[in-house]
Design a protein around this nucleic acid. Structure first.
Length: 445
RNA sequence: GGAGAGGUGGCUGAGUGGCUUAAAGCAACGGUUUGCUAAACCGUCGUACGCCCAAAAGGUGUACCGGGGGUUCGAAUCCCCCCCUCUCCGCCA
């Protein structure tokens, strides 16, 4: 969410953002509603000022012991005169009350519409962001490592997982329906090894580790920008007005909601590992094979809450991307970094980079990380602020990025480390987390 | 889930219909004093929105005492609904 004052003063920028991001936002209506909102407040304030003034007089008229009353009598006013003055005042107060109720009723409607429209205004993309219609407009920034060339017939992760007895998709479906799976034995160990490597990496880089609620109030989904709009993608528990999060970004970013932080305690660097739930509504038929697009997974997420400073925010953006790359490099996986274009980046984002890791079964790069810079979009919705050096209250900036998400990352790990005999070599970086296991071989073999 | 007690500023805590402009204290910040620290004293000390000002500084108005309704000329205060916290009981990893 942007500041309404900023919006009114940067109409062209906002209009361009609406166009480039292809979001539905009636800016003209918002500006008109805002104008009406101001008029109503001005009238309401005037009514209340008069009402407050006259109201305190009534107390005096009615209290013969008050100084005002005795002064009035001394000046020659009669009790009857004061009484009639009191009645006159109450008559005026009745008129004010009637009009105030009308103004309040309209204000309620206007504010509802104002709030609803404000939630649709997109953040203005950074100058570095490529303009484009959809994922096809994303631009490759750099490429690290190169895809492995095989001299035998490669298996995909589903074949490998089944033959090694570490991934059981049919039973996952039996338990929980499509897009579910079961990891077992060395498969589950590999999954937790990846998460632990990621946790160790991110905490060694100065991020504080959290364990957070993953069923959160809808307010937090709104505050982080997932609602309105993303309700269909989340498992929502209607009777409790709570939702299962699709990422720990939500509770981490919202951790300080409704707080004013001290300048000195920023930046906040948070990380958490959590299970993530996604309905994948509207994705029917897309990425149905294997464990690429699934209803639940575990993810280590990193979040930064920093000052309202563009340069500082950019610096942290680079930092959280570097953190993710460090994990991929430790896992010896080839990847590329993509600058996400305006049409693919989402309403709230100022700048966004995806990291895509090479996946032999897709014969291409698949998205494994997403690093977003939100400016004040989330912080303003969350009422997340800080007091700057001059003691002025400012809205924070927020950013986040994946550290690692598994089992999606197991796709390249399994496929790229497979051997001609069907076994999979465990990446060196993961062995300490797998009781020293160097190779996953078929069950019983 | 049942019963009871509560929710007031960063914190503690007064406040049962109108001199409340939310007391007082603590913490914090600025200053005076001081060889330094401490203490003492003085001052400042909420958020949001509107308006004034070219802007900043500042000024001014309104709202806000868990949330939402109601009574009243007037509500932190009275009434209703909801939420949350604490204590006890029940259930439970």
């Amino acid at each position: 969410m942007l500041d309404i004052k900023y919006i009114s003063e940067h109409i062209d920028d906002v209009r361009r953002a609406i166009r480039d991001k292809r979001v539905a936002c009636d800016l003209d209506r918002l500006l008109a509603v805002n104008q009406r909102r101001k008029e109503l407040q001005t009238e309401f304030d005037k009514l209340r000022t008069e009402s407050n003034d006259l109201g305190s007089n009534v107390a005096l008229y009615r209290n013969p012991k008050s100084k005002w009353y005795q002064d009035a009598i001394a000046k020659g006013m009669t009790e009857a005169g004061i009484k009639s003055e009191a009645e006159k005042t109450q008559g005026r107060l009745g008129e004010i009350k009637g009009r105030t109720k009308e103004v309040e009723a309209e204000t309620k409607l206007v504010l509802e519409e104002f709030d609803r429209l404000m939630l649709t205004v997109p953040q203005v993309p950074s100058a570095k962001t490529p303009v484009g219609p959809d994922a096809n407009g994303n631009v490759e920034v750099r490429r690290v490592g190169s895809p492995r060339k095989f001299d035998f017939d490669v298996k995909d992760h589903v074949q490998l997982g089944e033959s090694l007895g570490i991934l059981d998709i049919p039973r996952g479906v039996k338990l929980a329906g499509t897009r579910n799976y079961v990891l077992r034995g060395p498969g589950a160990m590999l999954h937790y090894a990846v998460l632990r490597l990621a946790v160790d990496t991110i905490t060694s880089r100065g991020f504080e580790l959290f364990n957070v609620p993953i069923l959160v109030k809808d307010d937090m989904m709104r505050g982080t920008g997932y609602y309105p709009g993303g309700e269909e993608q989340a498992y929502r528990c209607e009777r409790d007005e709570k939702s299962l999060v699709g990422t720990a970004e939500v509770p981490l970013t919202a951790f300080h909601t409704d707080e004013i932080l001290d300048d000195a305690e920023l930046p906040k660097k948070f990380a958490a590992v959590s299970t993530c739930f996604r309905r994948e509504a509207g994705a029917a038929g897309k990425d149905t094979a294997g464990i690429y697009r699934i209803h639940f997974f575990d993810k280590v997420e990193q979040v930064v809450i920093c000052r309202a400073d563009e340069a500082e925010s950019e610096r942290f953006h680079h930092e959280i991307i570097a953190n993710a790359e460090a994990v991929l490099q430790a896992l010896e996986l080839p990847y590329r970094v993509m600058a996400v274009c305006t049409g693919d980046m989402g309403q709230g984002k100022v700048e966004m980079y995806d990291i895509e890791t090479w996946m032999p079964s897709r014969n291409g790069y698949g998205e494994t990380h997403s690093a977003s810079r939100f400016g004040e979009f989330q912080a303003r919705r969350l009422n997340l602020k800080y007091r700057d050096g001059a003691k002025k209250v400012q809205v924070c900036h927020t950013l986040n990025n994946t550290v690692i998400a598994s089992p999606r990352i197991l796709i390249p790990i399994l496929e790229l480390n497979q051997n001609s005999d069907g076994s999979v070599t465990v990446p060196k970086a993961l062995r300490p987390y797998m009781n020293g296991m160097e190779r996953i071989t078929p069950r019983g073999a």
